[in-house]
Design a protein around this nucleic acid. Structure first.
Length: 547
DNA sequence: GCGGATCAC
DNA sequence: TATGGTGATCCGC
């Protein structure tokens, strides 16, 4: 046991030796971005509870939050919390346009800034500050003012020595504020000491609970348990937790690249369905949706994954490797159908609420021009986004030799078979109103609720509020009430509710793993013990080697 | 490599 | 009345 502690201390030493305090990393996070953008078009909504989303809320403005409405919340729950809530449909064209204005400002401070999503980005402003002899805090202040000037939206920012810390800091003074954590080891250590584990990007609800179960509530608590963590949660999680305790994170900020895509998939939820013909129709439809995405992203997949969710919310996946890489609906359907049929055999009375298809082991079909013989020439994992400032042009992904050969062979074969089809697809794409990258859930075009709705009901008049999920009275206190809703929405509650309400035949044990029962008294090895260092990158992990 | 599970947005 | 979709990663087997 003391050897475990010694090993942990060595790991800490190793990390400590390479601690980098020389960089100024900024995490920028727009405030209620989608809602804020909508407010630009609908100024009258500024003082009214407003949320944006389809089915599930994507963002809520501050008025909506006062009622407990939050992103990630089902629309019907939010409407119960706040009956005069105005819900707007998503409009990604609008959001991207505004995001683009913001990105223009980012680029002036760090041409290599990394977008983590539409409304989040990491910047390394070290060079900027050196070049212009600027104080990081003032520089960020000015950048945020500039963003507001040009885009009319507000962003919050965190400034710190690395991405992990900056991400936490950007939430400190939200909205429309910033927080600076000095590049000082002592300041960082004490900052992390009291930091609840959940605040760290990569530690979710589950891991938080598991850590809590052994007595770790804050990142500072991690140290005392350093001798146990590897055995409990695995080596990766151990390393990650050490970086949390130390407040260490990556400092290399580079633009994310399309080339790092590893899968393309689509899935959809529907009313409970057990009719075999209907299920096949649904599968066929999903295959066609996926074909569109494969065409848009220009990939084929050598592996096809079928995902289903039962009416009990249990999720299963099955995958196969078709004889050739697939991307067309006919093939996607043809090869996924046997998987569905097998599941129907394994799980009698199969009743689904979700079906999805995903391609992995991708082969890029991006055209890099026309080769000598007039054949379309495919390339492997070409970085798709030519950022004007990108200095990473030489960083093409390299495949192992034999894989490359196989892929090339595969492609030649497919091209012989499908060259006509492909040029047809190309022609289609030209006339196509190419669906937006985020344009999903298009079948549901909900409820722009008229703004002049009647006043709030008597929700707030009593000193208890009724939980919209469990209907039990809760204390009329924002924080406590929200926490209760979190609990109520947890999967445990869902499963209990489903079990209690449906006297369903249990899933045969042949396909159900013991661990699918969510109750567990002893923490087990974690399914996903957080990416070692890229949990806060928002894109594929780039391993950091300390040299 | 497969299937389950977790996490971010 | 009725809980989303996309993508990534890690673990045990």
């Amino acid at each position: 046991m003391s050897s475990d502690i010694r090993r942990a201390d060595e790991a800490i030493n190793e990390l400590e030796i390479n601690r980098d305090l020389s960089q100024y990393i900024v995490h920028c996070d727009a405030d209620a971005f989608y809602a804020a953008v909508e407010e630009l078009d609908h100024p009258e909504l500024k003082e009214v509870p407003m949320a944006v989303g389809v089915g599930v809320l994507t963002t809520c403005n501050y008025h909506a939050r006062k009622f407990g409405c939050r992103s990630g919340m089902a629309g019907f729950v939010a409407m119960k919390l706040c009956p005069h809530l105005v819900c707007l449909p998503l409009n990604f064209e609008k959001y991207t346009a505004v995001a683009q204005k913001v990105r223009e400002v980012f680029a002036e401070y760090d041409p290599n800034f990394q977008s983590a999503s539409l409304d989040e980005a990491y910047l390394n402003i070290t060079e900027y500050c050196n070049q212009y002899q600027r104080d990081p805090v003032e520089a960020v202040q000015q950048m945020r003012a500039e963003i507001h000037l040009r885009s009319k939206i507000t962003v919050s920012a965190g400034i710190a020595a690395n991405a992990k810390l900056a991400k936490i800091c950007s939430n400190k003074n939200k909205p429309n504020g910033q927080f600076h954590l000095a590049n000082d080891r002592g300041a960082i250590m004490s900052f992390m000491r009291g930091m609840p584990t959940r605040k760290v990007n990569g530690i979710g609800r589950v891991f938080e609970r598991e850590l809590d179960a052994i007595g770790v509530k804050t990142c500072g608590d991690i140290y005392a348990y350093r001798g146990y963590l590897s055995k409990l949660f695995g080596e990766k999680a151990f390393q990650f937790l050490m970086t949390c305790y130390l407040g260490i994170g990556r400092t290399d900020i580079r633009p994310a690249e399309e080339s790092e895509r590893k899968s393309v998939g689509t899935e959809s939820t529907f009313r409970d369905m057990n009719d075999k013909t209907e299920l096949r129709t649904k599968l066929r439809h999903i295959a066609e949706e996926l074909e569109k995405d494969m065409k848009r992203t220009q990939f084929k997949g050598r592996t096809l994954v079928l995902k289903i969710k039962l009416h009990t919310y249990e999720v299963f996946t099955r995958q196969i490797a078709p004889p050739t890489a697939v991307h067309k609906a006919d093939d996607l359907y043809k090869y996924s159908l046997p998987m569905l049929a097998k599941l129907e055999k394994e799980i009698p009375g199969l009743t689904l609420r979700l079906m999805g298809l995903r391609c992995t082991n991708l082969i890029s079909m991006k055209k890099d021009g026309i080769d000598f013989f007039g054949m379309t020439k495919s390339i492997i994992s070409r970085p798709a986004i030519q950022k004007e400032f990108s200095n990473n042009d030489d960083e093409w992904e390299v495949w192992p030799e034999d894989e490359f050969e196989e892929a090339a062979r595969q492609e030649r074969q497919d091209e012989m078979n499908e060259i006509e089809a492909l040029s047809q697809a190309e022609a289609d794409a030209q006339n196509d109103d190419t669906p937006h990258r985020y344009a999903h859930g298009k079948e549901v075009l909900p409820n722009p609720v008229p703004s002049g709705q009647q006043e709030a009901t008597d929700i707030e008049e009593e000193n208890t509020w009724s939980c919209p999920i469990c209907s039990r009275p809760q204390s009329a206190n924002d924080k406590a009430f929200n926490e209760h809703i979190d609990l109520c929405l947890s999967r445990q509650t869902i499963e209990e509710a489903v079990k209690a309400s449906s006297t369903q035949e249990s899933t045969p044990s042949s396909v159900r793993r013991e661990s699918s029962l969510l109750e567990k008294s002893i923490p087990k090895k974690r399914g996903r013990p957080t990416k070692s260092d890229s949990a806060d990158t928002g894109h594929a992990q780039k391993k950091l080697f300390f040299s």
